[in-house]
């Protein structure tokens, strides 16, 4: 048998990775995703979040606008929540009353809000990859997304490549 000639060049223990598909646009599920993401960062893991479908709406910046949208894109933009502050609970939303109540309870228990968790994730180096196809479907443009330090617009190949090198893969 041939001798293994591979030489290891790594300088420290290999960085573990976690990759998540963040699909849901529900407040509760987005909170779960962001708490796991920031927690994983505390474990020195490389964290990759692939935002797709309804979740992309949570990355919209309320103050930003994009020009040159067609009628359907404008309609979608108008119907979907404009940013992390506006997403609702998956259950017991009750026309927004439930969501308002849970936000009050979260504040009381000092649980970070979704915009706070996004900011924290940015500071911790969590990567957010946004699905280009979803952006096109929803009619969102990258100019209207929040300012986030490690954000890329990409496709499924990026997720698969990240996930194949990750110990933990989640779909939320």
């Amino acid at each position: 048998m041939a001798e293994n000639t591979n030489t290891t060049v790594s300088t420290g223990p290999e960085t573990e990775q976690i990759s998540m598909v963040v699909f849901s646009g529900d407040l509760d599920k987005l909170l779960a995703a962001m708490i796991i993401a920031t927690g994983a960062a505390a474990y020195d893991m490389k964290v990759n979040l692939f935002f797709t479908f309804w979740a992309t709406a949570a990355l919209r910046a309320p103050s930003k606008k994009a020009a040159g949208k067609d009628f359907m894109s404008k309609m979608f933009g108008w119907m979907l929540p404009k940013g992390a502050e506006k997403v609702a609970l998956s259950k017991m939303n009750m026309g927004g009353m439930g969501t308002a109540m849970i936000k009050g309870i979260m504040k009381k228990h000092k649980v970070a809000s979704l915009p706070e968790l996004l900011k924290l994730a940015g500071e911790l180096g969590v990567n957010i990859n946004v699905c280009e196809m979803s952006m096109n479907l929803m009619g969102f443009k990258k100019e209207e997304l929040i300012d986030y330090p490690n954000m890329k617009i990409c496709g499924v190949a990026t997720f698969l490549s990240d996930a194949s090198e990750s110990k933990i893969q989640l779909f939320i």
């Binding site: 708490i35 920031t38 505390a42 020195d44 228990h109 000092k110 649980v111 970070a112 924290l120 911790l124």
Partner: peptide, 13 residues
Amino acid sequence: RGTACPGPLLAAK
């Protein structure tokens, strides 16, 4: 004190 999960963990890190 006064922060909820994952606050203390992140503070410790």
